[in-house]
């Protein structure tokens, strides 16, 4: 049994974190919930409008479009998770030379400012003068206007999204890989299993708890994508309709058009979406995640 004194210490020690959480997360969530039922004046002041914001959202084609774009982006970025597993497995090869160089290279995008990442890729993707289309031209392919064409923009953004998450995911997965006990591999090789077979029969199944965590985190982050859209796509051009995400729509309604109540309702909608999708993932994990 813990003494009163020990309880007090416990609370004291979690206080800084809990306080920060309350002030910067819980309170804003409560505020957003309240705001989503109001209509705001341009310079402050709110009037209660009930569920009007939500009914407006459900009938808005733009919301559906943004929802579709966001889900497509999330699926594309989640499709990059296997790539992270491969990278992590390669980085885990015993005796690999220049290991720290590779690790740095893959982790670099994670610690680079999103603004720098977005702008650099925007130049690379430029339809007329970009490096990517230049290289494609060298092999005879006429590259598209990656970030100018509504049909391509979300894919271009997803490529950058995958590129910038590989490092973070690989580091998590690497930790998972190193947690797999070596004797399994030794036993398998005595039984005559090759490298590839070991990977599919031992590594992948035993990595699933980490993979699950990575998939959940990647999805939550992907559903909240904003910075890459804001930085890479011309905000007045045709491409925005094919790449407007939920959070971008939130920004547009709240900060460009000054409809803050409506924007708050979008945020609530997104929160609900993330909760539901994450709950589904937790349900599904029983089917494919192996805990030792």
């Amino acid at each position: 049994m813990l003494s009163k004194r020990e309880w007090a210490w416990g609370y004291l020690l979690i206080a800084p974190m809990a306080l920060g959480l309350a002030v910067f997360y819980l309170w804003p969530i409560a505020q957003t919930l309240y705001l989503s039922f109001t209509e705001s004046g341009v310079f402050g002041g709110y009037t209660w409008v009930g569920t009007a914001n939500f009914t407006e959202l459900l009938g808005d084609e733009e919301v559906l479009g943004a929802l579709g774009n966001t889900l497509l982006y999330a699926v594309l970025v989640m499709a990059g998770v296997p790539l992270s597993i491969v990278v992590a497995a390669l980085l885990n090869v015993p005796g690999l030379r220049g290991l720290s160089v590779y690790r740095t290279l893959y982790f670099l995008p994670v610690v680079t400012m999103p603004a720098a990442v977005g702008l650099t890729w925007r130049y690379l993707f430029n339809g007329d003068f970009g490096a990517i289309n230049y290289l494609l031209g060298e092999v005879g392919i006429d590259g598209p206007y990656w970030v100018g064409d509504p049909d391509f923009a979300i894919y271009a953004i997803a490529i950058v999204g995958i590129w910038s998450t590989i490092g973070y995911n690989a580091v998590l997965l690497l930790a998972g890989l190193q947690g797999i006990p070596r004797p399994y591999y030794e036993a398998a090789s005595i039984d005559g299993a090759g490298r590839l077979r070991q990977f599919f029969r031992i590594t992948l199944p035993l990595l699933t708890p980490t993979t699950f965590f990575v998939v959940v985190i990647t999805m939550i982050n992907a559903l909240q994508v904003f910075d890459l859209v804001y930085l890479m796509v011309d905000l007045k051009g045709p491409a925005l309709s094919g790449s407007r995400t939920i959070v971008y729509l939130f920004f547009e309604k709240g900060f460009v058009q000054n409809q803050r109540g409506l924007a708050a309702a979008i945020a609530v909608l997104l929160l609900g979406l993330i909760l539901v999708l994450t709950a589904i993932q937790f349900r599904l994990q029983k089917k494919w995640v192996h805990y030792e």
């Binding site: 993707f125 339809g127 007329d128 970009g130 206007y145 100018g148 011309d234 051009g237 045709p238 491409a239």
Partner: peptide
């Protein structure tokens, strides 16, 4: 075409 002005 329209996309050109978007990119540059």
């Amino acid at each position: 075409v329209a996309q050109v002005y978007t990119d540059t």
